[in-house]
Amino acid sequence: MTYLVTGAGGFVGLNLVERLLTEGHRVRAFNDRPLPQAALARFCALPGKVEILRADVRDRAAVNLAVQGVEGIVHAAAITLGPKAALTPARTAVEVNTLSTAILLDEARKAGVARFVYPSSSAVYGAAPFDGAPVTEDREPTPAGLYGFTKLASEALVAEAARDGLSTVRARITALFGPWEHDTGVRETLSPPFQAARRILAGVPVAMSPAGARDWTSARDVARALALLLQAERLPHDLYNLSAGACWRPSLLAEALGRRMPAAWSTTAAATDEGDLAYNDDLARTRAPIDAGRFARDFDFRFMTPEEAAEDYAAWLEALGPAAFASL
């Protein structure tokens, strides 16, 4: 099969491209900047074949060429804004996150693409994960910032395309961490586990608050889930949450790294201290995990536990090496 992945140089994109190539597929990796050399070296050793397309997702002519002859599309290109929304002008974020979705859906319909997968975000739920009630797909979206609104607007476009006959599915992804995370310049705040790993591998002590547990989910698991949605013959639902279903602190990753590599790190932050890691929300609030039970039931899917995911990432970092990690 031939699949198109937009935002292929991003966090989700790199993991998905790797997954599809591992399965032996042909992947058109669409991105507006070069992919990391470490990722390209890895991709070339996999059974599938990767074709790099460097262009802007707002460029209709480039998108038209990219969709020709593909069986499925995963539209992962996005600018991930935090609460301050200071990364880029609002107009640019809206164009990249939402206008590009409209363009890609239109070109996909005209090209006869069989499946369109849209990686959305738990940001559409706003503060709901902090109110103590389970956050299922039935929860009314209440985005609190521009990023959440752009993702919800794109979801509406995807749902409308489904009514017009295109097979589509939306996946609301929770907090991500894991292999291939790096600073692409389009994510306002990198994950606290990544921040911790960067300091630890550089030999810099890191203080971690006893608060701040979140449902960080392995990007490898999310890539597996998106690949399933891309290739499934039947989609029982058109909307899924993707989450490991358990909250944990970055100290779990630090401990996994400490068992594998010498590192200087500390968990001596006081109970009221936010520590050295940047979050997108208030650490005084307790977050509940997003409920991904629907996806697990429909596809008999098991996410890695926090311990397994932290160990998997630590093993990946060890194999990659501190120097290569720093150069991503």
Rank of each mutant, 00 (worst) to 15 (best):
G293M: 10
E307Q: 15
D300W: 11
A29M: 07
T184H: 11
V135N: 01
L242F: 06
F30Y: 08
D282K: 08
A270R: 13
A128V: 10
T184R: 08
D273R: 03
A213W: 07
P192E: 07
K84Y: 08
W180D: 01
V169F: 00
A202V: 15
I103F: 08
Q231Y: 08
T98A: 11
A225T: 06
P322F: 10
A159R: 01
A38R: 07
H237D: 09
N64T: 14
A86V: 11
A202Q: 14
D32K: 07
F43Y: 12
A223Y: 00
F116I: 00
G48W: 06
L46V: 10
F43C: 06
N97S: 07
P143W: 03
P129V: 02
A133Q: 15
A284C: 12
T2E: 08
S327Y: 14
D291R: 05
A246C: 12
D131P: 13
A161R: 00
A159L: 04
Y3E: 07
Y147H: 04
Q231C: 14
Y118M: 05
G9V: 04
C247Q: 15
T6E: 04
R260Q: 13
M261H: 11
A270Y: 11
M261N: 10
S191W: 00
T184C: 07
A102F: 00
R249K: 10
S120A: 07
V5Y: 01
L252N: 05
V70E: 00
P129Y: 02
G145E: 00
G321Q: 08
K84E: 10
V27W: 00
Y240G: 01
A29I: 06
A264N: 13
C247G: 14
L252C: 07
R285F: 13
E18A: 10
P262W: 07
A270E: 15
V222Y: 03
A309L: 08
L252D: 03
D138A: 15
R259A: 10
A153M: 12
R109E: 01
D59S: 12
A45W: 12
L4S: 04
M208Q: 11
A263S: 14
A292K: 03
A246M: 11
A254S: 14
P262A: 09
E233N: 15
G178F: 04
R26P: 13
F303V: 10
A62V: 11
V63A: 04
D32F: 06
T136S: 13
P236C: 09
R234E: 09
T2L: 13
F149K: 01
L230A: 04
A45Y: 06
D56Y: 10
L235F: 05
V206C: 14
E308N: 13
A39H: 03
V12C: 09
D56S: 06
T286S: 15
R214Y: 05
A159P: 00
A114K: 01
R285Q: 13
A271K: 13
A162G: 04
A29V: 09
R91H: 15
D276R: 14
T98N: 06
D59V: 09
T22L: 10
G7V: 02
E188P: 02
E107H: 08
V63Q: 03
A86K: 10
G245F: 05
T286M: 08
T101L: 03
S121L: 01
V67K: 00
L229D: 02
